[in-house]
């Protein structure tokens, strides 16, 4: 379990990193927290010739809580974002999801942007980016561009980033007033990749649900948002038809079987977790009027 030979690059700026990425092309891989990449290298499941280690690039390690969103730099570790009180106040969903990302040791090293750029549908943070309708900021030789989740995630472990592009930050927009969120997942062991996970955002205005959305972990190919407003909108949280919402969720997800769970079980689980998080979010939205959680 030792990696094949590679050249280690340690650029000091985004420009330098992008230059190196352009030079090495498809033989290059960005190293940030390394929590997915290093095991893959050690098991020789991939052997890129060049690692572009961005850990020495200045300015990528900031969490910025702004009026409209929380902006997270490419070197912000999961743990930092998880414990960031400003980010929690602005967008509780971040912490609600982050505590489910593996274990503290992995969160101390792994980065939120890296997790999103890895585009694993079993990752929590891609689902959060999708539910918040966030933005990926990518820098390349042709300048910087902003990418929506729908455009960013192309497939399992596949994004629209070009070989010479670097994801430098993501932005998670805040929800509108009256919205509360909840997150739940079920894993074989605490911290494992979830068999299924669901994030929910429900908006309640004047005691009535006006918006309800979910996104999913491990049960869709790419992170996607399911709008359940048609099913739940207009109801009061106390008598909303959660079962109907769960039914729509079961129809929406496309789980696959693996050695830990069958597709049917995951589908059931997605529906049940959706029922639980939707109800919880709605209840929170109803009881914490005007607040964003």
């Amino acid at each position: 379990m030792k990696p094949a030979p590679f050249v280690h690059h340690a650029p000091r700026s985004v420009e330098e990193a992008v230059d190196v990425l352009a030079q090495v092309g498809h033989d290059g891989k960005v190293l940030a927290g390394g929590q997915s990449l290093i095991p893959i290298l050690n098991m020789r499941l991939a052997s890129p010739g060049h690692l572009v280690d961005i850990n020495r690039v200045a300015g990528l390690d900031r969490v910025e809580v702004r009026d409209g969103d929380v902006r997270v730099g490419a070197l912000v570790r999961h743990a930092e974002l998880e414990h960031h009180e400003g980010a929690y106040a602005a967008l509780p969903l971040l912490r609600q999801a982050l505590v489910n990302v593996a274990h503290p040791a992995i969160r101390n090293r792994g980065t939120t942007v890296g997790s999103i750029a890895h585009a694993d549908a079993a990752g929590e943070m891609p689902a959060i980016l999708a539910l918040t309708e966030g933005v990926v900021e990518a820098a390349g030789p042709r300048g910087t561009r902003e990418i929506s989740p729908a455009d960013f995630f192309l497939g399992a472990l596949e994004t629209c980033l070009a070989e010479d592009e670097l994801a430098v930050a993501v932005r998670f927009p805040r929800f509108s007033p009256g919205t509360a969120t909840a997150f739940a997942e079920s894993a074989r062991r605490h911290g494992d990749y979830a068999m299924a996970g669901v994030a929910a955002a429900v908006t309640v205005v004047d005691g009535v649900i006006t918006d309800a959305r979910t996104s999913f972990v491990s049960v869709t190919d790419v992170p996607s948002v399911l709008d359940l407003t048609e099913v739940l909108g207009g109801s009061e949280p106390a008598d909303a038809d959660w079962a109907a919402a769960a039914e729509v969720v079961r129809g929406h997800v496309e789980p696959e079987a693996d050695i830990h769970a069958t597709a049917d079980y995951r589908r059931m689980l997605a529906g049940e977790l959706a029922r639980r998080v939707l109800a919880q979010a709605a209840q929170n939205a109803a009881t914490t009027k005007g607040s964003s959680h």
């Binding site: 062991r189 605490h190 911290g191 494992d192 050695i259 830990h260």
Partner: peptide, 14 residues
């Protein structure tokens, strides 16, 4: 499942 990712030894949490 020849790795600690997929061979599920219980953690302290289990």
């Amino acid at each position: 499942n020849a790795s600690f990712m997929d061979f599920l030894m219980p953690y302290a949490s289990e």
